[in-house]
């Protein structure tokens, strides 16, 4: 190839680049793949799905008890919060099968009769480094359960428990929205969400000792 020919070829290449926008195309392809990974594949891969030992209807039970949520999720005498009920609380009604649901049968036969606690997976369990007092929020600040936990009392089924493969905690802490965007107060349970509410309500003295907010109020 002569010098002239070379020059012509070079010019043609330039023309092709200008017209097709190769780098831009590749940029867009890279961007699209990454966005796909980040927004779709990553959340799928991050969480594993686990089923509860058996299904449970909050709405059914809510209709049968007198004292709303606190009938089962009660405060102990010393003011500490009992959390998810133990067998001892259920046994009052479920010593024998009451209704006709297969779930109740599983419960009575596999757990009640064998005296085995149900290994419930707890959606709202905070990391071990978090100290949270239900009494301060429910008894003192008169907050409703729904503000943090949502309308779980109306649910007919238990949703699958999504466990973060890295931290081992429930997806409900970060929230369903992978970007962390929330529409309800109960969509997320991260520290920022605690702070949002505290800020909104002007809670500035969480610590009885120091009369102000401080790390150690929640991180013991």
């Amino acid at each position: 190839m002569g010098t002239e020919e070379k020059q012509i070829k070079h010019a043609a290449d330039h023309a092709a680049e200008g017209a097709g926008g190769g780098p831009i195309l590749f940029f867009i392809i890279g961007l699209a793949i990454a966005l796909g990974i980040g927004w779709i594949a990553f959340p799928k891969a991050l969480y594993s799905q686990k089923q509860q030992p058996f299904d449970f209807s909050h709405s059914l039970h809510n209709g049968l008890v007198d004292n709303g949520c606190e009938s089962c999720h009660f405060f102990r005498e010393d003011g500490s919060y009992a959390g998810v009920p133990k067998l001892a609380q259920c046994i009052g009604c479920h010593e024998d099968v009451q209704g006709s649901t297969p779930e109740e049968k599983v419960f009575v036969e596999e757990y009640v009769k064998k005296g085995k606690e149900v290994p419930w997976l707890i959606y709202s369990r905070q990391p071990d480094c978090v100290f949270f007092s239900h009494a301060a929020h429910v008894k003192v600040a008169k907050m409703k359960c729904e503000e943090c936990h949502g309308p779980i009392g109306e649910s007919k089924n238990l949703k699958p428990y999504e466990q973060n493969r890295i931290t081992g905690y429930s997806r409900d802490i970060w929230g369903q929205n992978i970007a962390g965007i929330k529409t309800h107060t109960y969509d997320r349970m991260k520290m920022d969400d605690c702070a949002d509410c505290h800020k909104e309500r002007g809670v500035k003295a969480s610590s009885v000792q120091t009369e102000r907010d401080a790390c150690f109020v929640c991180h013991k």
């Binding site: 780098p23 890279g30 961007l31 793949i33 966005l35 990974i37 980040g38 990553f42 970060w174 970007a179």
Partner: peptide, 27 residues
């Protein structure tokens, strides 16, 4: 269209930008 070094660089830059625009690193 010719695939060259520049294409891979663009792909990488695009990928990087995409990851940065996704919740992945922050999460």
């Amino acid at each position: 269209m010719k695939i060259d070094r520049r294409s891979f660089l663009s792909l990488g830059v695009g990928f990087g930008a995409g990851i940065a625009l996704s919740p992945l690193p922050w999460k």
